[in-house]
């Protein structure tokens, strides 16, 4: 790690100096600082800055940015009304990491692209303009949707995938006050500026995530990975599906492991909505989802795997 100054702060405030970084759980930031992918000049420790409660909010819930993943997944209200969120969090990392990782930090988790994490390789996200060694390299973990020729990294987390399907909102505090960002719009696609993972500005800080009123229907989170636990997703699917009279009345689907952001596709949901579930329908939905999917060799399999994962989730969620 490069040297840095450390200061504990009492309030959750945006940083105001370049080189400052907020640290809470530190599970991702310290990992990257050890690799010198991140090298802040000053760490502002917000781990005791409050914002660690889950409270009722407009018929839904407001999860403070510093609520740990463990606490969030263990919360009775989350478990009862948003089981998808609890399941997604519990599918991620390990209990030890979830005890440290926070809601705000987890939203900002950086990619697991091995080239991003290795300072001796070329990476446009880590070092803009240097090139992308993943395009022709080992890219089994990489994105198939919404990629660009400068970056094929994925957003690696689970929690945000669930939040996307749940239509959650990120509450952000900046110099000019609070703004609300739908989770689905929080992460961005790499385009020609892959250095930015999300739309959070340098002078903004996440203060909370809010969940709308609980939606009717079944909620599920399916994560496919190389080992049964403690591994990142190859593909994951978050689903909220309501069946009425043998038809899919409402469906929200978000995918992890496929893109630089949790992937939500309105067209896929539109195909499913109002129709009786069947393997053929699931296939049609997958066709729409994956119409523009592009493999880069090592990750070609994700196209077929995403189709199969979707079929599995839809089958399970629509079983009588």
């Amino acid at each position: 790690m490069r040297p840095f100054d450390y200061r504990r702060v009492a309030d959750l405030q945006p940083v105001d100096q370049p080189g400052d970084r907020l640290i809470a759980g530190g599970t991702n930031l310290l990992d990257l600082m050890k690799l010198e992918v991140e090298a802040p000049r000053r760490l502002l420790d917000i781990s005791r800055a409050g914002h660690d409660r889950i409270t009722a909010h407009e018929g839904g819930l407001r999860i403070g940015a510093l609520v740990t993943n463990a606490d969030c997944a263990a919360d009775p209200r989350i478990r009862a009304d948003y089981p998808l969120l609890a399941k997604a969090i519990l599918a991620g990392a390990s209990p030890q990491l979830r005890n440290k990782a926070t809601t705000g930090g987890n939203l900002c988790q950086r990619t697991r692209c091995q080239y991003f994490m290795a300072t001796d390789t070329r990476c446009n996200k880590r070092q803009p303009g240097s090139g992308c060694d993943a395009l022709q390299g080992v890219n089994r973990n990489h994105a198939i949707l919404g990629t660009s020729e400068t970056c094929i990294a994925t957003y690696p987390g689970d929690m945000a995938v669930a939040l996307t399907a749940l239509d959650a909102t990120v509450e952000v505090l900046g110099q000019d006050g609070t703004r609300l960002i739908p989770v689905a719009e929080f992460h961005r696609l790499p385009g020609d500026d892959p250095a930015r993972d999300n739309v959070l500005r340098d002078d903004e800080v996440i203060t909370a995530v809010t969940l709308p009123e609980p939606a009717a229907g079944r909620q599920s989170y399916r994560k496919i990975r190389d080992r049964s636990s403690y591994a990142f997703a190859l593909v994951s699917v978050a689903a909220v599906i309501e069946l009425r009279e043998g038809r899919i009345a409402r469906v929200a689907l978000a995918f992890g492991g496929l893109a630089h952001k949790p992937w939500r596709d309105p067209q896929t949901e539109a195909i499913l909505t109002g129709r009786p579930p069947s393997p053929a329908l699931f296939d049609q939905a997958a066709d729409a989802l994956l119409a523009k999917a592009k493999g880069r060799g090592g990750n070609d399999f994700k196209i077929a795997l995403a189709r199969r994962a979707l079929a599995a989730v839809l089958t399970e969620a629509t079983e009588e």
């Binding site: 450390y6 504990r8 440290k100």
Partner: peptide, 12 residues
């Protein structure tokens, strides 16, 4: 709470 002590700074 159990945590990974490698990903935590002593000063914190």
């Amino acid at each position: 709470r159990r945590i990974n002590s490698c990903l935590s700074l002593a000063i914190m």
